[in-house]
């Protein structure tokens, strides 16, 4: 199966005036199309940094990064942004919805930047809102929704442009267990339909939904477990 994501000797440093910290060190991972991968590790181990690079939000210091077969490690912000558009959907722990926009408008946003025609936009937004069972809340503002509903809106926004990859950063971190469960089932469902999912999580329970778990420690990959093996 072809690789959606492949990194070779990926390295990321954070430097302040006094100290230089190695956030990622010699990261070599491959994620295949249609895979569901969880990245785990203690706080500060570099999970989010890795997700940022995978999500084309940041560049590595050195090493190679292939996204959909393209070497993108040294892409400019502009090129990364173009590639990101429509190819990657993000789901965050804190939902990151725009407070001033309604549910409908938040979900519509990626399509606006993709310059999707308005009829098409309407159809697709309504489709994902229905799918996420949030259609009746379309004209509400994020603050008027429960955490679970907000995360469903965020997932709707992440998938509305039909991206190849969804990157989820602690997607259940701010949710109670029932809502968390629902979000995980939605991600699983999307994965079953063929979307590649990379999820950062602290929760072994959530990680159980993944095919594979990559464990990071101090910026290095320490173990990679196939889920079946994990359960054994």
């Amino acid at each position: 199966m072809e690789n959606t994501i492949k990194t070779v000797n990926l390295k990321k440093l954070y430097a302040t005036e006094e100290v230089e910290t190695t956030a990622l060190d010699e990261i070599n991972i491959e994620i295949k199309k249609g895979e569901f991968v969880a990245i785990m590790g203690p706080s500060g181990c570099g999970k989010s940094t890795l997700l940022n690079i995978i999500g084309l939000l940041d560049n590595p210091e050195s090493g190679e990064y292939f996204f959909l077969g393209e070497e993108v490690a040294n892409y400019s912000e502009r090129k990364r942004s173009q590639l990101r558009k429509g190819n990657i959907g993000f789901v965050f722990q804190s939902f990151n919805l725009i407070d001033e926009l309604t549910v409908y408008e938040n979900v519509e946003l990626p399509l606006l930047y993709l310059k999707t025609p308005s009829d098409e936009r309407k159809r697709r937004v309504e489709e994902v809102l229905s799918r996420m069972h949030i259609m009746h809340r379309r004209d509400h503002f994020p603050q008027q929704l429960s955490g679970g509903q907000q995360q469903r809106v965020a997932i709707a926004r992440a998938i509305v442009a039909k991206p190849a990859v969804i990157l989820a950063d602690e997607p259940t971190g701010n949710l109670d267990s029932a809502n968390g469960e629902e979000v995980m089932r939605l991600l699983e469902e999307l994965n079953n339909e063929g979307t590649t999912i990379v999820m950062v999580t602290h929760s072994p329970h959530d990680a159980n939904y993944a095919h594979r778990i990559i464990n990071l420690f101090d910026g290095k990959v320490v173990t990679e477990n196939i889920r079946e093996q994990f359960h054994v």
């Binding site: 999500g55 725009i98 946003l109 930047y113």
Partner: peptide, 15 residues
Amino acid sequence: KEVGVRKVVGAEKGA
């Protein structure tokens, strides 16, 4: 936060 979200969902600097 808004700027970040917009960039994440595809906004370019010019926009």
